[in-house]
Design a binder for these strands. Structure first.
Length: 483
DNA sequence: CTAGGGTTAG
């Protein structure tokens, strides 16, 4: 009896440590328990399996499974559900299917969560048809779908750009009186924002408020990001204020969200305040939090502080490298940035697209011939490029009046399927047209016979910067063309 | 135990 009670106590302790992402501490509690004769049970192991799946990965969770079996305990549905959820998160479709089969083989019966997780994995792995088949087999197994089932469905529809269908499903659930929870609302609001339907998203937010349900941090940060996305800055900041007013607790996710938005808006003091608060509130900062923190240091020009932070950690990811490369470029340390990027090839397995784009973007902004040439050299050695790469290069070339070169690169990019903003395309084409014109004019007429007024008014009609929708700074200095 | 929200380049 005493053993049972102490195991339950240990489980509560392990669970709360896992919730706080402190798996190591949880493991120590279990080890101490065993030493003191308090044996872990299925719940203990399941808690650990779930934590490893969530915080590390399925493979790490398998080692717990192993220990569990060694202790003579059999995994149950909960164990399998966590593992399937973990493989869904890692898009490990074959693994999740194996787990499902194994579950059936050992004589366990799947529950709603099993089906939900499997369906989720199929959706995430790009197999919507199979996912829907799982939904149907769930029905034939006489298992009633939960709100999570529909949330997964709605989420998938949103991710595939079918927010309209997601909304339809949402309305259907409303009509038949199926309970929709906060996650349903949050998922759909986010999906609507991402498909550009600002008004509908905002109406849904009001509907949520009207339904008497209390929004959470997720709702507010989703609204905030959605507002910024559609350039409604005031409303976005209002949402930020609402998080505090509603008494929502910020977690690491919310902090990083808010801080990155503030940095992008140039509200550096506010961003710094939130970083301080994050450090005070979140305890041990995870990788993303630290990246956010380092990013702020670099954006503030505090290179040394950023590098100090960097030295304190041993796990670096692609984001960290990008942030660092960007920070170096902002301080004109291009060679350092380039060397770092090159060292990535040997140390990391991440894509170097963003770091390359950072360097090229910064070089092109300089408007110097030698910088531009360096940028072109980098461009030629990139194995993967995207519209950022092209936009930076074309911008830089136009700035230097190298329109023909820009045009050729643009056409090569277009042939490769790169989608460029129309403003960039127009800048190149107008520049090319104008420089040809200029060459022509120079050949035809003697300088003395030129009528300045005429030339000016004629060219203005075809000038890219006469377009009010166009950002003048993106095209470069018109003086370059005029001379 | 599951579903939803986080970090980089313009």
């Amino acid at each position: 009896m005493t053993r049972r009670v102490s195991t339950r106590l240990m489980n509560i302790c392990v669970a709360s440590l896992c919730r706080a992402r402190r798996v190591d501490a949880a493991e120590r509690v279990v080890a101490d328990g065993i030493r003191l004769g308090c044996l872990p049970d299925v719940v203990t192991y399941n808690t650990l399996v779930a934590a490893y799946c969530r915080l590390v990965g399925v493979d790490a969770a398998y080692s717990v499974l192993h220990r569990m079996r060694e202790a003579g305990l059999h995994p149950n549905v909960v164990t399998y559900n966590s593992l399937i959820a973990g493989s869904a998160r890692g898009r490990r479709l074959p693994l999740s299917l194996d787990l499902f089969e194994e579950l059936l083989r050992v004589g366990l019966s799947p529950d709603v969560w099993t089906y939900n997780n499997l369906m989720h994995c199929l959706f995430r792995s790009g197999c919507p048809d199979h996912a829907l088949r799982v939904l149907m087999s769930m029905e034939s197994a006489n298992l009633a779908p939960s709100s999570a089932t529909y949330n997964i469905l709605i989420n998938d529809l949103c991710k595939r750009g079918a927010a309209r269908d997601a909304l339809r499903l949402f309305r259907y659930l409303e009509r038949v009186g199926f309970p929709r929870d906060l996650v349903t609302f949050n998922t759909l609001i986010d999906g609507l924002f991402k498909s550009g339907r600002f008004g509908t998203a905002r109406r849904l937010f009001w509907e949520l408020l009207g339904s008497g349900r209390a929004p959470n941090v997720v709702t507010y940060t989703t609204m905030m990001k959605g507002c910024f996305r559609s350039r409604r800055f005031e409303e976005g900041l209002t949402m930020l204020g609402e998080i505090r007013r509603a008494g929502c607790r910020f977690d690491a996710f919310a902090y990083c969200n808010v801080i990155s938005v503030l940095i992008k808006m140039g509200k550096m003091e506010a961003a710094s305040d939130f970083v301080e608060e994050m450090i005070a509130q979140c305890g041990v900062l995870d990788r993303v939090c630290r990246n956010t923190q380092i990013n702020l240091c670099f954006k503030l020009g505090k290179m040394d502080d950023g590098l100090d932070l960097l030295n304190q950690v041993d796990e670096i990811d692609g984001y960290t490298v990008s942030i660092l490369v960007d920070g170096l470029c902002r301080n004109n340390r291009f060679l350092g940035a380039y060397n770092l990027l090159k060292s990535m090839a040997t140390t990391g397995t991440w894509s170097n697209l963003v770091p390359y784009n950072c360097i090229i973007g910064a070089l092109c902004k300089q408007g110097k011939v030698e910088s531009m040439n360096f940028a072109m050299m980098l461009f030629s050695e990139m194995e993967r490029t995207d519209s950022f790469t092209y936009a930076s290069l074309l911008h830089g070339l136009c700035k230097l009046g190298r329109f023909l070169e820009a045009f050729r690169i643009m056409m090569a990019g277009v042939r490769k399927g790169v989608r460029l903003p129309t403003s960039v395309q127009r800048a190149v084409l107008t520049g090319l047209r104008l420089s040809r014109h200029k060459l022509h004019a120079r050949k035809l007429s003697a300088p003395s016979s030129q009528v300045p007024g005429k030339a000016g008014s004629e060219s203005r009609s075809g000038l890219a910067w006469a377009d009010p929708n166009l950002d003048r700074d993106r095209i470069g200095d018109p003086a370059v063309l005029r001379d």
